[in-house]
């Protein structure tokens, strides 16, 4: 469990806190989508999860370990993987396998185990066979999956994605979302930060940040029903959910959050 208890964070030199009184939980085996406008504090929250930043007030614990504990810094970071937006800026190795090995190498994992971890991580993200490829020759989607493999090789329980699908084309994005599903099935807890509310369709829960505070934490369905609030949060309903909202306003019974067009059609005309 990653647990935020009344966490506030103020950057040194800033007048206003970036996060105010955040309480939040991420359990293994669940996907939580985190949304919010630019500057609402999403990346700050991501960096608090693995102890890159430590709370100004309150506590963040990972599997019961406080992120402030200097003895546990590397335990915490290896439990919580962080995948960023631009894959080019997080790939350290000059060939794929060297990059995947970077994390466990830092942890001092023995060479024989390193090889196993690298192979396993590459298999999860479907990059097996690309071990000796140079990262800059991969597609953006493949690069991002490489970054995920790099996080996975540390053997984390949780992975935080900070707008990791924002720069990808639709197939690349679909691949990364599929990897998230696979990770959830394998018992990993996923925190997925995104601007696209359609990414919420696959989430177990949605959390919305507004100017550093939690504005919503609950079911996706329920969140989409409050569509008047969304524009205040700097968000926009995805086309499908907007269509569903219009239908509901017209008195038809359809779910507020549907995964795809077929779901909507079946709700209207059950076969």
């Amino acid at each position: 469990m990653i647990e935020f208890q009344n966490v506030s964070y103020t950057y040194s030199g800033a007048d206003v806190p970036a996060l105010v009184d955040i309480s939040l939980r991420l359990a293994p085996g669940e996907i939580v989508v985190l949304v919010g406008a630019n500057g609402s504090g999403k990346s700050t929250l991501a960096r608090l999860c693995n102890g890159l930043l430590v709370p100004s007030e309150g506590t963040v614990t990972v599997n019961g370990m406080s992120t402030i504990d200097p003895e546990r810094v590397f335990d915490v970071r290896s439990r919580v993987g962080l995948v960023l937006q631009n894959p080019d800026n997080q790939i350290v190795g000059t060939v794929v396998e060297e990059d995947v090995a970077f994390g466990p190498e830092n942890l001092g994992v023995a060479t024989a185990d390193l090889r196993i971890r690298v192979d396993d991580a590459l298999a999860v993200v479907s990059l097996t066979g690309m071990e000796r490829r140079e990262p800059h020759l991969l597609s953006e989607g493949q690069k991002q999956r490489l970054a995920i493999a790099g996080a996975l090789a540390m053997g984390p329980d949780y992975i935080v994605f900070d707008e990791s699908t924002a720069m990808l084309d639709p197939p690349g994005r679909a691949d990364v979302l599929a990897v998230m599903q696979r990770l959830r099935s394998a018992g990993h807890g996923i925190l997925h930060i995104t601007h696209h509310l359609d990414d919420a369709a696959h989430a177990d829960r949605i959390v919305a940040l507004d100017a550093g505070s939690i504005a919503f934490d609950g079911q996706v369905e329920e969140f989409f029903e409050q569509n008047e609030r969304l524009s205040d949060l700097g968000l926009e309903l995805p086309p499908l959910a907007a269509a569903a909202a219009y239908l509901r306003n017209a008195g038809l019974v359809v779910p507020a959050a549907v995964a795809d067009a077929r779901g909507l059609v079946e709700a209207l005309w059950p076969s």
Partner: peptide
Amino acid sequence: ELAVAMESRCY
């Protein structure tokens, strides 16, 4: 960003 990524991976 690279520094963030490297630190996250326990460098």
